[in-house]
Amino acid sequence: MSAALRLVNLTVSYDRHPAVHHVSAEIPAAEMTAIVGPNGAGKSTLLKALLGLAPHIEGRIESTVKRIAYLPQQAEIDRSFPISVFDTVLLGRWSRFGGFGAAKHVDIHDAQHAIEAVGLSGFERRPIDTLSVGQFQRVLFARLLLQDADLVLLDEPFAAIDSKTVNDLMAVIQRWRAEQRTVVAVLHDLDHVRRDFPNTLLMARELVDAGPTARVLSSENLLRARAMAEAWDEHAGACDVPMKLTA
């Protein structure tokens, strides 16, 4: 199986304190991979490093993908801006028409189709600040559909949403997999990971294990991850590793 991403001795630090420490792993292409681990394990930081958004990255990230779509945690999104569901979804095509261009007919058609695909027909003109958490997450998934990315990064996509919404959004993720897109998701529900995600990275700032989910989420590995997280020295300094990002 080919790799969409290869992490080589990756370290990410904040104020010289490592949040991700010497991680080497491969993320297979055209597959669904979960990133799991205890609180503070560096899961979200790892996603941001893959996007180039982390402040201090050392080691190498080797990538074969051309287009990346990213779903942040909802807590990071300001919903007070007066914008409709339809216009929020249409922002998925921002890279095509930018701030001064106009959406084409195909963009408008695709935005409508994406809204229907996530079960929000009739919500097009609703302001996003009137939506429930689950409804807004559907909007964000619809926006991802318009981005047509090779790699989709999801940070806690099912946090605080109801089971029906989870099932509906999982159908979207399975659709991406069928289209040979690579999906990487930070998740907390290990039963969900075991059921739906063939590959897993288990983190405790350092990598505990990576590979087939059934092996990675063994009792021994989960105990090891917990012990590593509890024993981590918050004052440990980051190692000096030359930075190199390659595509």
Rank of each mutant, 00 (worst) to 15 (best):
R126T: 14
I161M: 02
A102Y: 09
D150R: 00
G37Y: 05
V184N: 07
A114K: 10
L46F: 08
A204P: 01
P72E: 07
R60T: 15
A49N: 09
D107Q: 11
L153H: 07
V23A: 05
S13E: 06
L217F: 10
D189N: 13
T165W: 00
H105I: 00
D196Y: 15
D15E: 13
A30I: 01
S132D: 12
L47R: 08
R125T: 15
S132E: 11
L201D: 06
V166H: 02
A49F: 11
L153V: 10
V193D: 04
G52A: 07
Q174D: 14
R224D: 13
W94M: 14
A29E: 14
R226C: 02
F136H: 11
H56K: 13
L50I: 15
G99Y: 12
N167I: 00
N199P: 01
N167T: 09
V118H: 09
T200C: 14
I128K: 08
A111E: 03
H192N: 06
R67A: 08
A236N: 01
D150S: 02
T130F: 11
I27G: 04
A185P: 04
D209L: 03
G99K: 11
A4G: 11
T200W: 05
L190T: 04
S218G: 15
D129S: 13
A225H: 07
K164F: 01
A3H: 11
P242K: 12
S84H: 10
P55R: 11
I68V: 15
A69Q: 07
K43Y: 07
R205V: 12
E230D: 14
S44R: 09
V241L: 13
L153A: 03
A30L: 00
L71W: 07
L90F: 04
R79S: 06
L5Y: 09
R16I: 00
L202S: 09
Q137M: 06
F81K: 09
D129G: 01
S132A: 12
L201N: 08
E220H: 13
F123I: 05
R67N: 12
V172N: 01
E156H: 10
S163Q: 11
V193P: 05
L50Y: 10
A171I: 00
R6I: 13
V106H: 13
A69I: 08
R79N: 07
W232L: 05
T165M: 00
Y14G: 06
Q135A: 05
R175L: 12
R224M: 12
G99R: 13
H22P: 00
L50K: 05
A160D: 08
S13N: 09
L217Y: 05
K244Q: 14
L201S: 04
D233K: 06
E234C: 02
K66F: 03
A34I: 03
T213V: 12
A149I: 05
P212V: 14
A210Q: 10
D107T: 12
A159N: 11
I68P: 00
D189F: 03
P38A: 13
F197T: 03
A236D: 06
A149Q: 02
A111V: 08
L131A: 09
A171R: 13
L169T: 02
H56M: 10
R6V: 15
S219E: 15
D162N: 03
V183C: 10
L7H: 06
I68G: 00
A214M: 06
I161R: 05
L187Y: 06
